[in-house]
Write a protein that binds this DNA or RNA. Structure first.
Lengths: 212, 212, 212, 212
DNA sequence: CATGAATGAGTGTTCATTCAT
DNA sequence: AATGAATGAACACTCATTCAT
């Protein structure tokens, strides 16, 4: 029932998150090797030494950034599917809408670009990310596609391949934003972009045409 | 009439390309900051000092890698579109098939991942890449979509957005290969992947259904 | 009321001077290009990295060495002349005696040799040194000569030229000490050397003879 | 009696001298460590490799520059003194005039500054230079002073000290020219400078006044 | 807890030297 | 003899990491 938390206390507990937030921004912007801990510390408003009170090394900080960036992703609704009433197309729209709310529209959106850039340098972390995030995310899409195909709503496609084809534009949205989109080119309105993608995808998957 | 070229001479002319090929591999794998010039030199089979006979600095090498990696891309056929006899759907398939032949299936396929990773560190280069490669590539897709829409073959969609939605899975194919695909996860058969994508996209774009 | 200063603190403030003292010795001995920062650091009893906490680059260190070496020189008494009671000859002896006390007999005596050696590599610094040190030093001699000539004590000579002729042996004393004098040849007793020079110079300047 | 020499031949034999002339300029300007052999070669109009056909190493080139710079100095007239008819003062003027003709007014004038700058880095060479050039040069002055003193023309002074006092302005003339004089400050007219110096010195040495 | 001065291993870059042509 | 491509040791500079305060 201790509702009041002392500012100091709050600060102390918030520190790791603040540091990781600062680190995420810089890792995304400059890559792992290109990011200096001085800059991370400066952005978080602490001294360089303070970083080492919370993280054993630069690498540990990096892993924490990725892994903490994953937790909220994992919390997301696998539950969404089970209880879902509606067509597979509607479910697909709901899933991606959910993704947008919980990831695409938050600082976590930088994680995919970061993981792509650094997978070569952190293979174990990449495996962890794959097994923890990608496998589960793909599973959500898989079940959605399978439901649609089983119901005759979707055409019969190679599901494993289609999963990636369908999620690719979603990923590119955030990859672009944190790479070339930051310095040049039009950045799309995300809602229009996702809308267009879903329209095309749903239409593309639709079995309707073939009934003609 | 000087048909004979000395080995030294031959070597000297081939050197920059050899060095850039080695550098591309390592930059893609480890990023700019994570790549050591010792390793680049070793992979090219020369000493570190030799790099400096051909490139003023690590940054100059990086820029050369990107810019030389672009030349072959630019040489590709915008001409493909003009003379093309066939439906817009067939043209789309032809374009992406061409891309696969000339880029996706060559070492140049590493360039997009590299540019995405380093755009933040080399903004001017990113602008150059955008203006030189991306703008032209998007133009090819744009003309294809416009032709299909004008012919009533494709549905009316927001073309600027659709361009990116449609090219995203193509890019993700090579991005994946040079990132997480290298250490984990199933790597798709590229032909099946592109096939699936094109089927979905063409079907998604198709106006046929709406004629019912 | 903070009378206590922490050792770290004390050290931090003393560091630049320690580093510059070590650097002066080595720059004088080996020249700018021939001096390794490792050696400077070692002589100052710190690590190489520490140098960069206080100086941005080797060049910045060099400039600081010269410029800080100038400050004590500038503090010296132009005031000596104004209040001086006595003959111009006595004033000349006093000035050079002062120079010996404040420069010739301190580590600053290495600066002239250093500046001579490196003027070609640091032209702007040479200009700064000239304008700040040499011009002022020459002015002291000039006023002394002019006073002596005006009083009929000194012969009429080309003052601008005589300034340098008279100061040359003084400079050579320290130049010699930090160059060939260090490895070969007799090093004069400085007092006898300056005495002899002043006797000759004063006698040479004296108008007495011509009164005959 | 082969008076005609082929240009090629002439070139070949002149090469070392050309290289040393180029090297002298650069060594004087930038110091030993600061001089790049590329630049020496470029200034001499040959390739870098060619240097190694004539000199074993950079150090060998440096030593040759100094030692060859000495030969003409040694050729100068010790003989001048023996046969000299005239006062010691006239002899002093003649000696320094000779020095001006043979050294001060030639590229060899850069040698003293170079030797001063690099004595610390080449102690053996400094010893050689000292024993070969300085000792002999001082001997010429010594004999002149002794002759003057013996004849009652010069005052009794500490000869060993006076030697250096008297030669210092002569050296400073060329040291200045190749150091700060190159980038700032008035460069004196050498004749006026030497004239002024000799007038002062001769007057300073003169015993006349004391006879009064 | 927090700091920031200090460290030293690591890397980009230079340049004297070599050698195949 | 002359070249200049290639080398690799050496050095300036950076930055992750430590630790006394």
């Amino acid at each position: 029932m201790e509702a009041i938390v002392h500012p100091r206390q709050r600060r102390k507990e918030a520190r790791p998150a603040e540091l990781m937030a600062a680190a995420l921004e810089l890792f995304v912007e400059k890559g792992f090797a290109g990011t200096r801990l001085d800059d991370v510390a400066a952005r978080a408003g602490v001294s360089k030494g303070t970083l080492y009170l919370y993280f054993d090394s630069k690498e540990a900080l990096f892993k924490a950034v990725i892994q903490e960036g994953i937790v909220p992703i994992l919390e997301q609704g696998a539950g969404l599917i089970d209880g879902f009433k509606g067509s597979a197309a509607e479910l697909l729209r709901a899933l991606i809408g959910e993704w947008w709310q919980r990831i695409g529209n938050t600082p976590l959106a930088g994680v995919p670009k970061l993981m792509i850039s650094e997978a070569g340098n952190f293979p174990e972390l990449a495996v962890y990310y794959h097994d923890t995030v990608i496998v589960r995310g793909r599973d959500l899409i898989r079940r959605t596609l399978q439901r649609g195909i089983a119901a005759g709503e979707f055409r019969v496609v190679d599901v494993e391949t289609a999963i990636d084809v369908i999620f690719a534009p979603v990923l590119m949205l955030v990859i672009w934003r944190y790479s070339l989109g930051a310095c040049c080119g039009v950045s799309h309105d995300p809602r229009l972009y996702l809308q267009t993608h879903l329209d095309l995808a749903v239409n593309g998957l639709s079995a309707a045409k073939e009934r003609i």
